[in-house]
Design a protein around this nucleic acid. Sequence first.
DNA 1: ATTTTGTTTTTGATTAGTCAAAATATATAT
DNA 2: ATATATATTTTGACTAATCAAAAACAAAAT
Lengths: 222, 222
Amino acid sequence: MATVAVENYLKHILLLSEGEAENGLVPMGALAAAMAVVPGTTTTMVKALADGGLVEHRPRQGVRLTGEGRRVALGVLRRHRLIETFLVNVLKMDWSAVHPEAERLEHAISDEVLDRLDALLGHPATDPHGDPIPSAQGKLSTEVHATLATCATGKPLRVVRVTEQSAEFLHFAEVHGLAPGATVRVTDRNLAAGLVTVKKSTGHALALSLAAAGNILVAPVQ
Amino acid sequence: MATVAVENYLKHILLLSEGEAENGLVPMGALAAAMAVVPGTTTTMVKALADGGLVEHRPRQGVRLTGEGRRVALGVLRRHRLIETFLVNVLKMDWSAVHPEAERLEHAISDEVLDRLDALLGHPATDPHGDPIPSAQGKLSTEVHATLATCATGKPLRVVRVTEQSAEFLHFAEVHGLAPGATVRVTDRNLAAGLVTVKKSTGHALALSLAAAGNILVAPVQ
DNA sequence: ATTTTGTTTTTGATTAGTCAAAATATATAT
DNA sequence: ATATATATTTTGACTAATCAAAAACAAAAT
């Protein structure tokens, strides 16, 4: 029943409610920006979604998924991330190119195909960017990680996730050995200059802005 | 630029112009039936396609693809048939279930992904139903085959194609060993009764209506 | 307590694709 | 040659999703 547009609104509400919201309410403006539509369109659509029981709309405050809306959104996200994993692991595409592909395929793939893809990939827990893949039952890992902007300095760390899907950033991260699985150490962090310096396992040093460093999630090497 | 609806109209015009048309003109009614829309919708859409230079519309007579329209339609057909091949050969889906899947995915897959799929599958010439896959350059094999309704009787034959995508018929064909690659002989053909009897390599005999037999294309075993 | 600023909602239009039903043209049969 | 049946086109209406621009509201600043 859910159209492509409906699936996209729900998906973006889910993603925005993870990142930004404290009270769980996603501001209409943030949603409009994410969907690349004018704000008025978002109001119209959100009211329609609310009518359908998929979201709760607090006028002038924001929007929040209902249980049913979250269920649908998690399904879309699961499809998206499994498709990205397939494109990278099986078709050997570059991880910086798969996002727009998955953006279209996620609305066209059935549960049947998805289950087979999942099995073919060995039921992966994360996609190539380290983003957790919701389970078929709608469970989404909420593990919290430090970032290169917030982690302890000096200690060896493993990159576990890159939370920025722009092709440019992903390409940059790949070229400079900051893809999930890489081992790095933060050697210096200068808040005033907004600069983070990391040393890679190759010995090479690399400087990043705090903003960029915040997109690289890391975990201590055990 | 071509929307999902446009791609579907063009694809169906191509398929119908293969099967039925003598003069190359597809009647509006046939197109409406294939698209499962009312005739008026077809008239409206065909006029829009003609405006876009994708078809030639002969009012009250029918519609025919232009060079550009044929190019687009062949692209859709290539995507459809490569996707079906992937679903059967790689994901091991039943050949009777893949048509509706491909029907949606064919509009969501990029050339990049398609090329990689094609390579993964080893550049197949036909899909699991024996339907020829248009080349990336837009060449479509036009080999003409006899059917179980028209072939010589007595001689051993290889099934090369099943031209009917309904799940029921495909399931029937599979269960009774009439999938592409199978070897059979027509032992009897009774025009009056409209019945064809075939003997399979297993020795089992099977009776088919002439209409059903016409959907099984065969070639002499060399 | 007002004014200003920024966000959200409303209103009126637009586009793509569709249906229902009436009107028209063509082919077929008498 | 005319009536009848069939196919096609036209007309008017509808839905989903969108934009532009005006209006309304809420928060922040004076």
